[in-house]
Design a protein around this nucleic acid. Structure first.
Lengths: 135, 135, 135, 135
DNA sequence: GTGGTCTAGACCACG
DNA sequence: GTGGTCTAGACCACT
């Protein structure tokens, strides 16, 4: 019987993202980096809510989103587990999302005085840890 | 006697960004790409609003934001003009914004089945046209 | 459980500045003087609007400007907070703004019968309370 | 018979002040610095308007304001001349204007990372040329 | 409850 | 004609 994997999320005071987003992004990164292996059990809604001193509804909503995105799986009565990696989105949908992300990214860095190469280099560093799902 | 530079912007129905954001992003890209040269006169608030069939205040707000970001300059009674490029933000602030943009970008592409190289290649293509302000 | 810091702002009838400007200037001074510490929660848009008997949009606009200038930070659903101080503008941009402010100031005091020393003395007094961000 | 003193005003493209303000400020500075001596004849409204390629109404309005502030004097049929220096405003009114200018100035330099001494030093330099009216 | 966005229409200063 | 300010009221997402 697996106990919840040690699970670290902190709500950063300086972070302006909505709480739910912070949880989702954090879990996704930990899974993608391999820190949360497939089959790992996550802390329950109420435990995590208490730990972060936030509203349980916020946690439940974040978990639900992670399930519908295919990162987590709910086994009723047992809890939430990290799901097997699987292709969920069509190729064209994935391409669409990549395009959209690239567009937003460029909009955000447009006025900054960096060369394309500086930007790409910085981005590579950020991408580096997350190879788990592809290998 | 400078007439407004031909100026193309369309409000895409499928675009989820707020209207004002779409205007801001479009103008910034056209300036950064060199399509709107320094000193160019922009279409008036009322004209653009009518052209896009949106509320003039929405346009005015977008223009105002572009002014405070240093892309445009207002001449009372005359109109809005593309401003001289200048390095407005401190180096550390620029780095902070690049970091933040990279973080958001990775959060968006995390579950997609692309290699880092595929992602970087796609991004390079998106960045390609915008060298004006740096060269 | 932080309640909004007691927050005093009054719309002066004799003040010719736009309402939004009065709010912005007042908040900036209170932050710079240390009366509003980092992390302090500001009164909500609706509450302040009611307190000043002005339109909520006017307050929202002022708050938004303070955010984009880096004085405040928005946490969706929670409210607006005094942001960590950070050097946002480049040195040359800061110099540019100081030059511009000096120019405007001299234009305003030109014809008044004060010596430079009288003017400087008066200005020192005005500057005195605002050392918080620099010290 | 005095001919118009050589008189230099340029409308700066980078200057965002209204045209009328630019004229007023420029004339005041030239008088206060002693470059335009008492009794000097200014170029006529239509000449200056043509020289700057702006609307004569704008020039006329600027000249009228300079007259009502006591910097210029109109001798009907002859033209506009630099007026004798005289105290036009009450002491309390002068004090009120100085206070107001100091307030605005501080509002403009608040977020900049300069010490009071740096600011005062920069301002002294700007004030330096204008002693004519007080001596 | 919070802020964010958009619409609609008024009034002002500037040219 | 231009942009800038303010008011009024609607709808959305987040907590």
């Amino acid at each position: 019987m697996s106990r919840p994997t040690p699970f670290f999320i902190e709500v950063q005071p300086g972070d302006t993202r909505p709480l739910g987003r912070q949880i989702i992004d954090s879990v996704r990164r930990q899974i993608a980096a391999g820190d949360l292996p497939v089959g790992a059990l996550l802390p329950s809604v109420r435990v995590l809510a208490q730990q972060l001193t936030i509203n349980p509804n916020t946690v439940a909503k974040a978990y639900a989103d992670l399930c519908s995105e295919g990162w987590l799986e709910s086994r009723p009565g047992l809890g939430l587990f990290v799901a097997e990696a699987r292709e969920r989105l069509s190729r064209t949908e994935q391409q669409r999302r990549l395009d959209q992300a690239c567009g937003r990214f460029v909009d955000e860095v447009l006025g900054l005085d960096f060369t394309s190469e500086e930007i790409v280099k910085r981005l590579r560093a950020e991408l580096q840890p997350y190879r788990a799902r592809r290998a």
